[in-house]
């Protein structure tokens, strides 16, 4: 067994909170640079240029990319040969979030209860997803997820016979209803299959894939491409001002499901699609 002190996890999470909020990923910058070439709308190009300038200012001056520094979503892939020592893992993660959000002057957006709505003051609790995997490493993915695009996300229990066309209609309907609210150009995570709750998680996981990386399954890779083209025919454009580039990419994650079910979830992410990863 490899022993890892949970304090190490706290320190890494704290650093990752800052890193993710100040640095837009290279894949997203590349996607936006490509979008700038393809956008026909003058105001749309102006918006994409603002977004690229924003990324430069953010990492240079240490000002968060967006004032919505998000829910602190954390994915932990824990190797089954790792023994965690020195305290409670969940608490170690929350401590990291608390320290990171304080140290880097990030916004504290969490409220204690959905109806009482008192701000917890430190952006905890984090939303943590654990996965036990073979090996002796811990993979941590930190995702600050904005509320604006989260609000525009949807899930629908389709009928199996609705199939691919039902999924396409639902994705287009969701993106169209979101309009400018989700801060286009967006990244679209689509979860297909599983149960009600795993489907939504698949959609979120789909957002973590590098922008240019397509699904490893040829059929889904093709569906991603067709969906992205269809979304970009909607005309919403950067910030909804009208234009060709509404989405930078569509990513699908699929999973086995029940004979009666075709759950489909669409998790939208704004252009500031932030996520960082470390392997300990």
């Amino acid at each position: 067994m490899r022993r890892i002190n949970v304090e190490v996890i706290t320190q890494n999470i704290a650093e990752m909170c800052c890193e993710a909020n100040f640095n837009l990923g290279k894949d997203i910058i590349e996607g936006l640079t490509e979008a700038l070439k393809n956008e026909e709308s003058p105001v749309g190009r102006d918006v994409i240029q603002q977004i690229l300038n924003n990324a430069e200012i953010s990492s240079r001056d240490g000002v968060p990319l967006c004032q919505d520094t998000g829910f602190a979503v954390v994915f932990i892939e824990l190797g089954q040969e790792v023994s965690l020592v020195g305290g409670d893992l969940d608490e170690a993660i929350n401590k990291g979030v608390r320290e990171g959000y304080h140290r880097c002057y990030l916004r504290k957006s969490m409220v204690n209860d959905p109806l009482m709505r008192d701000n917890t003051g430190d952006n905890t609790p984090a939303v943590v997803h654990y996965n036990i995997v073979p090996g002796n490493n811990i993979k941590i993915t930190f995702v600050p997820k904005g509320g604006g695009s989260e609000n525009m996300s949807r899930i629908k229990m389709l009928k199996p016979t609705e199939g691919e066309s039902g999924i396409i209609d639902f994705v287009l309907e969701t993106v169209n209803a979101a309009g400018a609210n989700a801060c286009p150009p967006v990244v679209i995570g689509v979860g297909i299959g599983g149960t009600f709750e795993t489907c939504a998680l698949l959609a979120k996981k789909a957002l973590l894939r590098p922008l240019q990386q397509v699904n490893s399954n040829v059929y889904y890779a093709d569906l991603e491409k067709r969906l992205c083209m269809a979304v970009n025919c909607l005309g919403i454009g950067p910030q909804g001002f009208g234009g060709r580039i509404t989405a930078l990419a569509v990513h699908i994650e699929a999973a086995p499901t029940h004979i009666a079910c075709l759950p489909t979830a669409v998790n939208l992410n704004c252009h500031a699609s932030r996520h960082v990863q470390r392997i300990l």
């Binding site: 924003n54 200012i57 000002v63 990319l65 967006c66 704004c270």
Partner: peptide, 26 residues
Amino acid sequence: ATGGAGALLAQRIKSAEIVAYEDLGP
């Protein structure tokens, strides 16, 4: 204004002063 361009927009803000509801934080 451009959503998600908070760092760029902050450069155009020359002063900021809380004038009401300070208890609401952000």
